[in-house]
Design a protein around this nucleic acid. Structure first.
Lengths: 205, 205
DNA sequence: AAATATTAATCAAACGATTGATTAATTTAT
DNA sequence: ATAAATTAATCAATCGTTTGATTAATATTT
């Protein structure tokens, strides 16, 4: 059972992702959540704060997702990178509405609280690369002084473009589970190849 | 001198890019364009059709940009790819508002006419890669059977992420012309390195 | 050449509908 | 009985669009 509060949050997340913040009315949200319109103000304060609540909700679970990865000390630097790719792709796939929303807000820059969250999220990601990379160089398995920011732009850009394109394809072509599965495994492989080249890894993928 | 019609189109392009279609009111557009609000309906029919007009206007000049590149038969396949990168980056930089708008509409999928334009644009781009690649393989300078679509996702994803991030950085850091120049030349270099790896080019960049 | 008719461009004002938000009343749970 | 959750009704503000009128430029007729 989801509470009305959660129902509003999840419905808004999907609608904001699909139609944009300004393209979604509070009445639409309340209808989708099967909740009275005034409950938005009751639980979240306003439509704007509802959007911020969505980010806070999703970001919270996102932080330790990366941290737990770093603690797996039995893995090599390259194995960690592979795991990072796999987990990150799965996560974006699972939370596709939220990450659609993130992409939208990245273009918007209108809500300062959300800009700050995104900025921080970006910084955290670079830290993860940094840590793994340092280990990798010490282990002698990675050799590079490539710009981590450019690498991140390439990885996340490829990931989001691919997933968005898949959703677009789905509107005209009937994708079976098997086809979608292959699409995602091809994508993961491609991302690993990119990292391999950019970080100078010479082992097997 | 720009006509009122052009003034409306350019103002709307900038506002739609910065604040989104739904986040921009017709009154805002008319104010920015210094034109009466009713001129939107007079020249374009509606707010929605104004958006479509912006796409038609920009797409028109975009098509022959790619075609003229293909006609330069004195260049090697790799030189064509380098030129493609350079020109494309310059173009996105010059028309940053329009390409912001394109990114927004890629997430939206609500206007069928615009979806079709974007879909077609994507297809044209793949054709360009295809043609250059075929030449490159024949010339023996490129060797690959890599997915052209994944390559395009990587190139355009990196490009857009980088440019968006630059705009975000500008809101806090004071970027000089020199710094921005370096940012873009680093980006071009990075995109060429990506292509080099993915297409199996072994010459100098 | 002068008078008339037609068109294109622009305007202020108003339209009905929808927006996010709030109120006060009511139901439900503790 | 008190507090928390939910509701229907209502608010002022803004939305995209349309209206009828006016001006200036162009085309047609006399």
């Amino acid at each position: 059972m989801v509470s009305k509060e959660e129902s509003i949050l999840f419905s808004a997340e999907r609608l904001f992702a699909e139609k944009g913040f300004d393209g979604t009315s509070t009445r639409e949200i309340s209808k989708a959540a099967d909740a009275n319109i005034s409950l938005i103000a009751y639980y979240f304060g306003s439509k704007e704060k509802l959007l911020e609540s969505i980010f806070e909700y999703r970001i919270k679970e996102s932080l330790d997702f990366a941290l737990t990865l770093m603690l797996k000390e039995d893995l090599s630097a390259w194995q960690k990178l592979e795991l990072l790719i796999d987990k990150f792709v799965d996560r974006v796939r699972r939370l596709k509405y939220f990450y659609l929303l993130v992409q939208r807000e990245k273009l918007n820059l209108s809500n300062p609280a959300i800009i700050e969250i995104i900025r921080n999220y970006h910084k955290e990601f670079l830290k993860i690369y940094q840590t793994i990379l340092k280990d990798g160089i010490k282990q002698g398995v990675l050799k590079t002084n490539y710009s981590l920011e450019l690498i991140h732009f390439t990885i996340s850009g490829t990931l989001f473009n691919s997933i968005n394109a898949l959703e677009l394809k789905k509107t005209t072509i009937d994708f079976t589970d098997k086809m979608e599965q292959k699409y995602y495994s091809d994508l993961k492989k491609h991302l690993k190849i990119l990292l391999k080249h950019l970080l100078g890894y010479e082992g097997k993928i």
